[in-house]
């Protein structure tokens, strides 16, 4: 899978309350959650995002609660993937489980400017800053994690596995 879009850049320790405030958690609909994604940092974030855009952040992205609503909100806002210097452990797990591709790649974050175009090859882990013409490498995921992301998360992946067995 190739992701390509404009970069939206954020700082370190972006927590799950910032990604999606608790008052919206009564919904589990990605589109609905997406409307409020990161609104405390940028009230118009969701309306400015074009589908496919890429979120870039510093260290410890997604710290805080274990809510799966956080990666769902990012996905629902139209973001195709997240590249950060590092992720909080539970966010990492939740993102993969709901099918949001995320990559740890400090040098790619270092160089990224908001509005640059970034391309990510989810299979090889190759990250290209198209605007700067520079290439970076993130650790590629094993086949089964790539498949979980590609089919849209763990629940869909389960269906695929079950059908194969039948």
């Amino acid at each position: 899978m190739i992701l390509e879009g404009k970069i939206w850049k954020f700082g370190r320790d972006i927590d799950t309350d910032v990604i999606i405030p608790a008052k919206y958690l009564s919904s589990y609909d990605p589109k609905e959650l997406g409307k409020h994604c990161l609104e405390s940092l940028d009230p118009d974030f969701s309306s400015k995002v074009s589908t496919g855009d890429i979120l870039v952040a510093e260290e410890n992205f997604g710290c805080g609660s274990s809510r799966e609503h956080a990666p769902l909100a990012i996905k629902g806002a139209g973001i195709s993937g997240v590249v950060a210097k590092s992720f909080a452990r539970i966010f990492f797990r939740n993102a993969i489980n709901i099918g949001l591709p995320i990559f740890e790649c400090p040098p790619a974050v270092e160089d990224a400017k908001p509005g640059d175009v970034m391309r990510v090859d989810t299979k090889s882990g190759r990250i290209t800053n198209v605007s700067l013409g520079r290439e970076f490498r993130a650790e590629p995921y094993p086949q089964f994690i790539q498949e979980i992301i590609a089919v849209g998360g763990l629940i869909k992946y389960a269906e695929k596995k079950i059908r194969k067995k039948i």
């Binding site: 274990s66 799966e68 539970i90 797990r93 939740n94 993969i96 489980n97 709901i98 089964f144 994690i145 979980i148 998360g153 763990l154 629940i155 992946y157 389960a158 596995k161 079950i162």
Partner: peptide
């Protein structure tokens, strides 16, 4: 400890990543 989605998946498929 894992998430509820992990448990749902494991219950159905018998696996965990």
């Amino acid at each position: 400890g894992v998430g509820s989605t992990d448990v749902a998946f494991a219950m159905a498929v018998g696996e965990i990543w």
